[in-house]
Each structure stands twice: as C-alpha cells, then as structure tokens.
Design a protein around this nucleic acid. Sequence first.
DNA 1: ACAATAGTTAAGCATCCGCTTTACAATTAC
DNA 2: GTAATTGTAAAGCGGATGCTTAACTATTGT
Lengths: 114, 114
Amino acid sequence: MLHDPAQLDLMFQALADPARRTMVERLSRGSASVSELAEPLDMSLSAVMQHLHLLEASGLVRSEKVGRVRTCRIEPKGLGIAESWISDRRSTWERRLDRLGEFLAEQSKTNPKK
Amino acid sequence: MLHDPAQLDLMFQALADPARRTMVERLSRGSASVSELAEPLDMSLSAVMQHLHLLEASGLVRSEKVGRVRTCRIEPKGLGIAESWISDRRSTWERRLDRLGEFLAEQSKTNPKK
DNA sequence: ACAATAGTTAAGCATCCGCTTTACAATTAC
DNA sequence: GTAATTGTAAAGCGGATGCTTAACTATTGT
C-alpha cells in the first residue's frame, strides 16, 4: 500500500497545529461533541468547527450529527497512515545503519586497525 | 518525557510538505548534499535551502559544511519524536477500546441479551 | 588568475491559514 | 410558542508559507 502524498499533506498539516492536536488527544480518550472539543480551547466555536473540518478532510476524525449535537470520534486508521509513513522512513534508515555496521565489522576482521 | 508542543508544531509542519518529505525519504537512504536533495525537485536551489532550514529547525535533519558542500543527514531521534506522539494517541485509543470490550463482555455475562 | 561549482542571503509576491465577527438554522427545554 | 442550546456558513483580515529572481561568497579545477 503506497503512501498518497496528498493525504499525507493533509494529515501532517492537520497534526501541525496545537489546537488540532488537543482535539485529537481529547478524542483518543473517547468521542466528544463540538462544544466539548471547544471547551479547553481559547477560541470561538466557529474556529473549532474549521479545525474539525480539516481533521475530517485529513481522515483523522469522523463525526455524525444526531439531533443538534455532532459527535466526533477518532478514525484509528488515520493515525496509522501517518505513523506508518514515519516508521517506513525509520526502518529504511535503520536497515542502512545495520548494513553499515556489518560492513565495518567485516572491514575490521580482514583489515584490523593497526 | 513530555511532548513539547512547539517542537511538534515544527516537526509535523515540516512533514506536511511533499518536497520536504521527498528530502527526508532521500536522506533516510543515506546522507546527501544540498544539490543532491534538490535534484528530483522542480524548484530553485534557493527554495530547497529554505526547506532544509525548516527541516533542521524541526530537528528532523542536521547538516554540516565541509569545503563548499553541505552534507545533510537524518536525525533519527527526530522521526522518533513525531512517531511517539502518534503512537501514544493510538495506544490511549486502543486501551480504551479494550476496556470497552471487557465491559461489554461482562455485561453480556450478567445480563445476556434476551 | 579565471572560471566553474556549490551554497547563501535578501527582497518581493501570490497564496494559504487561523482566527474573528456576524448572521442564521435546527433542535430541545420550559 | 418562545427561549436557550448547539452547530453552520460567509466575509474579512493580518500574518505565515512557498516560491521566485538577483546579487553575492567561498571553494575547487584548469
């Protein structure tokens, strides 16, 4: 499964704002209404709504409205996508370090430091 | 070790751009000069330099200049910081799901569906 | 010495972001 | 029915972002 650049843009952009990360933190502890998400944030409800739009567009959060309250919850696959891009880079890096280590070990066997 | 919001801002912001992710991907395969980083990117060297500044400010990349070439390499701790924030959120979410599962299992034992 | 290479800095510019305020819509409580 | 609650939509604004070009510095090759 290849990484879709446009989605990664949206996802990392979404995580790049402290208010939005606060919302994700809150939602990782359980679903919440828009007002509940807004409560710890020092900004208008309207602003929170705009952050929520971004979070939904990125695929990190989904929500549904029942009556007059919209309930938001985490989309666990979303976090997985961002996490796996990072972890792919890390493992590429670490595999390379391993090979380098083996190479150096081999060097010091056939050509020990004087 | 608590997550520093300002650093997470810089880090996710850095990853939110396709050119910068391309640079990180390149560097995860090994160190590179600025020109090498620029090669696959359709923009001026100057623009690449600006992306590089951001990547260094975020702590994802470091570089040093020898002679007239600046060699850039990944800072593996950097990726770890972003990755661990995400994985902390995920595990909070998953632990919560587990508890919910246990609760529901308990419910159906003492109060089986009619 | 001169030219080519590799990088750096600064200014400028169009666009995007993160808010605000205002006005409005839908649901629920009294 | 009317008032309070909860959420939405639109317009506007200042500052941040992602480039460009142009001018410049430092190192290396001939």
